[in-house]
Write a protein that binds this DNA or RNA. Structure first.
Length: 483
RNA sequence: GCCCCCAUAGCUCAGUUGGAAGAGCACCUGACUCUUAAUCAGGGUGUCCCAGGUUCGAGCCCUGGUGGGGGUACCA
């Protein structure tokens, strides 16, 4: 071997392993313990002098001539292995010397403690399980390049413990949410991702084509209208943890493909959903983080309920000194414009309001903003005493919209009218008649809640970008950096 | 869509006024049977993102592009 080109060197080592009669890509390997357990039960295992076996990826090698230390990492942790020529034999050591960082190795041996007290395995036999042909990221700076982290998440997971923790927490948060809802008698359902008509939210859908049906389909932007059909069908407490898709701008808070929780409860209203949200988020935090006091972006946030509630009207009064109930949304627009807010096409988008409101609420999180003007909420029920206001809330935390809920509109005639008003302003949309038909059979009064799971995970893992909590975020031109 | 920033070795990064491409880790050679980012001696392995341009000379300046990040717009 006279080259220092790492790829060539590793190919050469692969060849030499084969020449030694070693299959470099092994098979089933029986482990007595995952690494974490070996460490936990170490004293018992070491005193019984029983042999143990473990498997994992070699992360560090410290050679000493005819002996060597290495760190073996599996899903649960790392343990040091000690390989000596006089223990594994000359051929065994020859094989070991062809092992690189990144290779998967199975080892059998006895647990022992080194002079310095490190729990280790004295290897008696080693098995090459997979030869790695490419060098891993740098051993203590890890992988920093964000593009590589996203494109090759596996490298991020191998090299960065923080990444492993974030995704571990993500999965446990989702599992805690399921547990919370199942315990309360909610049933988990699945509704179509491919929909003939994308409804239940605003936002542009992705379009696709079903050849067998000879029709265009859309990837759902929300599961809402199908979940409500199930309320019509008689189920009273349902939820779906769903991927939804929006063909819109990508940002640290927006992914074209994102995970959402939608929950529906018959005979309930949006106030019930506020309590449910508080309980659900706190239980997830308590289960996964062991506390309801979280830290995000340098700020300490206490999630203990009850959370602050402020009506949209009061928030507007506070911020812009306008009584929206008396003066209406038109004069709100005028006031905002004169306050320097730019309105595109003279329209006030819900999004602009969200931003204005989240600015207003900085430092007072988490907060429910409640009772929105009907203009922004075509699927929500009016307040009994205020027909221009709907029973709706949105949850904000750290300037981020985390949840959205309302008492569901279940009057089919009003729903058809409100759809028509909406459709009038967006020519590409049409009224979902099939959904209105369902309402005509009768949907019980109900409340619905949507929670952005990715964003919730961001809050609980102190991540500033949604891409950091999605294993494989969408990126452009995937072939561009391939070699 | 628009605006700003970034791209140098496998990885993390430095690179002065436009004048011979660098460091640490990784890797290779040698030594070493209790190391912890092992150590010691030696070795630089490169499409400076791509394509043009300016210049005697470009990693550096200019134009266009690609990819990434941030902001903004859109997101009932």
């Amino acid at each position: 071997m006279n080259t220092s080109d790492e790829l060539t060197v590793r190919q050469e080592k692969l060849k030499r392993l084969k020449e030694l009669g070693v299959e470099p890509y092994g098979r089933k390997f029986i482990r007595t313990h995952p690494v974490k357990q070996l460490i936990e039960k170490f004293d018992t295992l070491a005193s019984s002098e029983n042999e143990v076996s473990a498997a994992g990826r070699i992360m560090l090698i410290r050679g000493h001539g005819k002996a060597s230390f290495a760190d073996l990492q599996d899903e649960t942790g790392r343990i040091q292995i000690y390989v000596r020529q006089d223990t594994v034999g000359e051929k065994g050591y020859q094989i070991y010397k062809l092992v690189d960082m990144g290779d998967f190795l199975g080892v059998r041996g006895t647990p022992f403690e080194t002079k310095t007290g490190e729990k280790s395995i004295l290897v008696k036999e080693l098995t090459v399980l997979s030869k790695s042909l490419k060098p891993l990221p740098e051993k203590w700076h890890g992988l920093k390049d964000v593009e590589l982290k996203y494109r090759r998440r596996y490298l991020d997971l191998i090299a960065n413990e923080k990444a492993r923790e974030v995704f571990d927490k993500r999965m446990r948060i989702i599992s805690a949410i399921r547990g919370f809802l199942n315990k309360r008698g909610y049933r988990e359902v699945e509704t179509p991702i491919l929909q003939p008509q994308a409804g239940g939210a605003s936002g542009d859908p992705f379009k696709t084509r079903a050849d067998a049906l000879g029709m265009d389909l859309y990837l759902r932007i929300a599961p809402e209208l199908y979940l409500k059909r199930l309320l019509v069908g008689g189920w009273e407490k349902i939820y779906e943890i769903n991927k939804s898709f929006r063909n819109e701008g990508i940002s640290p808070r927006h992914s074209p493909e994102f995970t959402m929780l939608e929950v529906y409860a018959a005979y309930a209203d949006y106030e019930d959903m506020m309590r449910l949200t508080e309980e659900l988020v706190c239980e997830a935090a308590q289960t996964v983080l062991g506390t309801v006091r979280i830290s995000y972006d340098g700020k300490e946030i206490d999630l203990s309920p009850p959370w602050k509630r402020i009506t949209f009207g009061d928030a507007m009064k506070e911020k812009f000194d306008i009584d929206i109930e008396k003066e209406g949304i038109k004069s709100l627009k005028e006031k905002l414009e004169s306050a320097g807010v730019k309105l595109k096409d003279k329209k006030l988008s819900r999004n602009q309001l969200i931003r204005l409101l989240s600015e207003l609420l900085t430092g007072e999180l988490p907060t429910f903003i409640t009772d929105y003007p009907i203009e922004f909420s075509p699927l929500a029920k009016r307040k009994q005493d205020k027909p221009e206001i709907v029973e709706r809330f949105e949850l904000f935390m750290c300037g981020c919209e985390l949840a959205n809920a309302y008492s569901e509109l279940n009057d089919p005639q009003e729903q058809r009218e409100r759809f028509r008003e909406q459709v009038a302003s967006r020519e590409e949309r049409s009224v979902d008649e099939d959904f209105v038909t369902a309402l005509e059979y009768g949907m019980p009064p109900a409340a619905g809640l949507g929670i952005g799971i990715d964003r919730l995970v961001m809050m609980m893992t102190d991540c500033q970008s949604i891409r950091d909590v999605i294993l494989f975020p969408q990126l452009k031109g995937q072939a561009a950096r391939e070699k």
